[in-house]
């Protein structure tokens, strides 16, 4: 059976790694190749690179960053942020990425999911969703543009539609939990994994060891993504995996 994946996320701005807290405040962390290699050493199962570069011109740096990382680090690499077209996907896949995560562009132009899946295979197309609980409507709303703009989409319905269009994986960030370090949004992932039959990666809220056990025990997610707990050395991946193993979760 497949191992559950532990996935550090690197926010990259024009070739440098940063960590976005609640999508707004940024702190410098360092060189992508160095950090990626350190995570490989620690036993990361995959790396997500999120391009937070503001302008399209500077965004071209991302393919170069991936090219450098892929020549030194031998695990699956996912790239998200600012991907709008099949050409954008192709540039990153050619540079050495294994998957591309589409967020806002998939909402405004859902056909890009299908076009990417047909051209590269569903395994290359990750639908990234930023979701926030709406207590009035009693549903998770989808947000775009780095969490700044609310849409009228229901996250669970959008996830189902995205899979039907060709997304091979979902990377879902809980905006309520992101940056809080209070654990993953279990309810969100329970609903998502019940609704789709593709891998779901949980993101947002991880603050301590027990959060990983909780999300894998309580929701049928395939991977858990975290950033600051790893970047600032609060937890190591090996320590997370040891804890999961103790709990009977299959990890590499």
């Amino acid at each position: 059976m497949l191992a559950k994946r532990i996935i550090p996320c690197l926010d990259v701005d024009h070739g440098r790694v940063k960590k976005g807290v609640n999508f707004v405040n940024l702190q410098y962390v360092g060189d992508p190749v160095e950090i990626a290699a350190a995570y490989q050493q620690q036993g990361a199962d995959e790396l997500v690179f999120l391009d937070i570069t503001a302008t399209n011109e500077k965004r071209k740096a991302m393919a170069e960053t991936i090219r450098k990382v892929a020549s030194q680090v031998f695990m699956p690499l996912t790239v998200g942020g600012g991907i709008h077209s099949v050409d954008d996907m192709q540039n990153l896949l050619k540079a050495g990425a294994d998957k591309t995560a589409i967020n806002s562009a998939a909402v405004s132009n859902p056909e890009v999911i299908t076009a990417g899946a047909e051209k590269f295979g569903v395994q290359c197309v990750v639908l990234a969703i930023d979701a926030k609980w709406n207590s009035a409507r009693r549903q998770y709303d989808v947000y775009v543009n780095g969490g700044r703009q609310q849409t009228n989409l229901n996250a669970i319905e959008w996830a189902k539609k995205g899979v039907a269009l060709g997304a091979g994986e979902l990377l879902v960030t809980s905006m309520d939990k992101d940056g809080t370090k209070s654990g993953y949004d279990i309810q969100l992932y329970k609903q998502l994994t019940a609704a789709v039959n593709v891998p779901v990666i949980a993101s947002g809220g991880c603050g301590q060891l027990g959060d990983f056990v909780e999300v894998f025990d309580q929701a049928d997610v395939d991977g858990a993504l975290a950033a600051s707990v790893f970047h600032f050395g609060e937890l190591t991946i090996s320590e997370v995996k040891a804890d999961l193993r103790k709990d009977g979760v299959i990890v590499r």
Partner: peptide
């Protein structure tokens, strides 16, 4: 789940 995607 199909595809079989991940570490086995």
């Amino acid at each position: 789940k199909v595809p079989h995607m991940g570490w086995d």
